[in-house]
Write a protein that binds this DNA or RNA. Structure first.
Length: 433
RNA sequence: GGCCCUAUCGUCUAACGGUUAGGACGCCGGCUUUUCAAGCCGUUAAUCCGGGUUCGAUUCCCGGUGGGGUCACCA
């Protein structure tokens, strides 16, 4: 039987990294099995579902390259739920229940109680199902009682919609977060009342914050789009996220999407929750930045930057960018590479001494344009620097060229700036009062 | 609290019932470097506790404890 899996987010917030990992596990499994990967927008809660969140989810998946074979909206399927709901009532599995409309103590704010709701008639004392990751799970159904499956014929609740959709869409494997384990018995009860087949279940462990609590906004960035804006490459996310709770059983850590598809095994997924580690994500990001071609790396920078200059400093950027802030900030304003695009602004004190600047200028002026390479510049300056003290010469030189206490070595910087600009900056520094 | 899931270095994890308990990130140290990174080398660091089963438990079973999830007319 062909594998069909689905990722079913509800558009009540931006797609977060936990959601991406769930989507990714589904995607990997589908691709490996030659099956179908369905995206299902669960927007039955009209009040909380927002178009901008749906757009965020779609954009995120597109950016990551997780393409799906079909996309459904639950809000457009109410006629299907209604049909099944009527059958359920006709067959005696469900019934319209008269309720007390008075608010109850446990009600969430904004809860509006209906006089009539539809409940599923409880049928058995317990439910046992097999989880591909955890084995057999058994749980009693007593406290579920005759639970509510719809507010009305046209307003199905989550569990009903999920079960009907999974059935109608031929979903064979439900791969979702561990937080759904306790929902599973309820959904199985609905399945059995409906006469629907039971899919295989695989409940994946949750991604936790450093304090082991559920990852949320108060722990920093959670939305995929935030990571994209911070300059993280999709490859880093695609590589790091599945490793949170899964590994191939070897020491390999760097994977392309194609390799993941090939090596992924549901059975190798961990049972316990995993803490999200930003440092490790950064490390992956550095690894992928190193692998980028100059053109690819340059394309990550804002278009307004001078391409010619940008391409020249790329070797430097690449080397120093294993952990990155916003890429565009590095070359603008106070960014680490701003000095290459704008004349540096710095206090005279930072130079420590201006004494050797004229001599430096003289030495560098003797070089021809073609000799203005890091190696040649170094060879020209070092004998003098060694004679009067490296720190006395090299430090002021770097400050004059970059305006910063920290940068790449002054020879490389000089070569990148070019002879004319280097001399101009040295002149400026000598006259700085 | 009830129910369910879960437990190896700080973190992510590896280890047919027999290993000096391995790797990665981070940390720390060294080399290199005028500086900061990067790079290279190295160090530190773990089987939650208690019972079983076994010649032998990280591994299997039970209990405890810790952690997580869930208990809506949300999804």
């Amino acid at each position: 039987m062909a594998v069909v899996v689905r990722f079913a987010p509800s558009p009540t917030g931006p797609l977060h990294i936990g959601g991406v990992r769930t989507a990714l596990f589904n995607y990997l499994y589908a691709k490996q099995e030659g099956g179908r990967f369905i995206l299902r927008i669960e927007d039955t809660d009209r009040a909380r579902s927002k178009p901008e969140f749906e757009k965020n989810i779609l954009d995120s998946l597109e950016w990551l390259g997780l393409d799906y074979d079909a996309c459904y909206h639950q809000s457009e399927r109410s006629h299907i739920y209604e049909k099944h709901l009527k059958n359920l009532i006709a067959s005696g599995h469900a019934y319209v229940s008269q309720e007390s409309v008075a608010a109850k103590e446990g009600d969430r704010p904004g809860t509006e109680r209906r006089a009539e709701v539809i409940r599923l008639k409880s049928s058995k004392p317990d439910v046992t199902f097999t989880d591909l990751i955890r084995g057999e799970i058994k749980s009693g159904t007593a406290e579920l009682g005759d639970f509510i499956i719809a507010k009305s014929l046209t307003e199905p609740l989550y569990h009903l919609a999920v079960v009907i959709d999974d059935w109608e869409m031929g979903v064979t494997h439900v791969i979702r977060g561990e937080d759904h384990i306790s929902n599973t018995p309820r959904q199985i009860l609905i399945q059995e009342a409906l006469g629907a087949p039971r899919p295989a279940y695989a409940h994946i462990p949750l991604i936790l914050a450093p304090d082991r609590s559920k990852l949320s906004k108060r722990h920093g960035a959670v939305a995929v789009t935030e990571y994209r804006e911070q300059g993280f490459l999709k490859e880093s996310l695609l590589n790091y996220l599945p490793l949170l709770g899964w590994n191939p059983g070897t020491d390999q850590e760097l994977f392309s999407l194609a390799e993941l598809i090939q090596k992924f095994k549901l059975e190798k997924i961990q049972k316990a929750g995993a803490i999200f580690n930003l440092e490790k994500l950064r490390w992956f990001n550095g690894e992928y930045i190193k692998r980028l071609t100059d053109a690819e790396l340059a394309s990550l920078f804002p278009a307004k930057l001078n391409r010619t200059k940008l391409l020249r400093i790329l070797p430097l950027v690449r080397e120093r960018l294993t952990t990155i802030a916003k890429l565009d900030e590095l070359v603008a304003g106070e960014g680490e590479f701003a000095y290459f695009f704008h004349s540096p602004d710095y206090p005279r004190e930072l130079l420590k001494t201006q004494a050797h600047l004229p001599k430096l200028r003289a030495l560098l002026s003797e070089l021809t344009e073609g000799e203005f390479t890091p190696e040649k510049i170094k060879a020209t300056i070092m004998p003098y620097a060694d004679s009067v003290g490296r720190g006395e010469v090299l430090w002021p030189m770097r400050v004059a060229l970059t305006g910063r206490e920290r940068s790449a070595d002054p020879f490389t910087v000089a070569a990148l700036l070019g002879q004319a600009e280097t001399i101009a900056r040295l002149d400026y520094a000598s006259k700085l009062a």
